[in-house]
Amino acid sequence: MYISDSEILAYIAEDLPYFDLTTSLQDIKKQAVLKIFTREEVVVSCIDVAARAAELLGCEAKILIQNTQTAKTNDMIVQILGSYSNVHKAWKLVQIMLEYTCKIATYTNQMTRLAKAENEKCEILATRKSFPFAKKLCLKAVIEGGGGVHRLGLSDSILFFKNHIIAYASFDEFLAQIPSFKAKMPERKIAVEVESLEQAKELLGAGVDVVQCDKFSPQMLENTVALRDEIYPNARIIASGGINAKNVAEFARTNIDAITTSAPYAQGMADLTSKLEILD
């Protein structure tokens, strides 16, 4: 996941549109070093982006634990060296970015491990419900946590919801359009979200590529997988709606292909801390 300097500079400009009013009063000409530690075990994510932000602010950054690696409690993950004023400019920008991204990566990793322990083929896919204006960082954190991406956005995939289907006179009328949809987009999979086992059965009969089962119970998912195996083995069955680290193993056990979730985005921030030292 490439994040350009211009994107990082835009992030910096949100917090530093002109200059640091506080350090400008001090007029301190010394060097400083900022050390960022974790107070809990985390999967490190976006450490390269955080380091680059520090470099663009005139500092040197030393990455001590790389993306996708696990940092233990009290481990230092990055060190930033520069002038006193520049280190202060980088301080919260870097720490806050890492607090969010490491938390997303850590939770994604937890869900992935729990799912894979029950069903090796079951993928954890993050939804489009990332933080506004922070999609790249969120997706990068998910990927570095071992997860995948459900949809990058409206332009990369086809997924029909109830709000699309109500445009037709009936569900049967919608089903009749599936061959036309597949002919118009031969290189794309046609996915449809359903809320009942009966609709899932009808979609499989119509040759839909992906059946996304919204808020199905584990038993309903097992039934859907059995129908898939009987009617259209090439289809993929995905579970969505309310799945998180507490219940992911139960859903993965149903032999579905993937789970879509927004849970990694809703876990808050990792418990990181920092220490600034003045150098002689």
Rank of each mutant, 00 (worst) to 15 (best):
V210Q: 01
D172E: 15
A71T: 00
Q26C: 13
A235S: 11
G145D: 04
A176P: 07
E250P: 02
E198I: 09
C59E: 14
P218E: 03
K62A: 11
Q199S: 11
L139K: 12
I36N: 06
S170N: 09
L227A: 03
T101H: 14
L57H: 06
I65W: 14
I36K: 10
L197F: 06
K92N: 13
S155V: 06
E193Q: 13
V87S: 15
I104P: 12
F181Y: 15
L114H: 04
D15S: 05
G146T: 13
L203G: 00
I243V: 05
V87Y: 15
E277M: 15
V194M: 12
L152M: 04
A71F: 11
G147P: 12
L221P: 03
Q219P: 04
L227G: 03
V210M: 01
F251C: 02
R39N: 12
I12Y: 03
L139C: 11
V42Q: 01
C46S: 02
F216L: 06
K30Y: 09
R39H: 15
Q219A: 12
A53D: 02
R236Y: 11
P218K: 05
A115E: 00
I259G: 08
S155N: 08
D229R: 11
I28K: 05
P179I: 01
D172T: 09
V210W: 00
L34H: 04
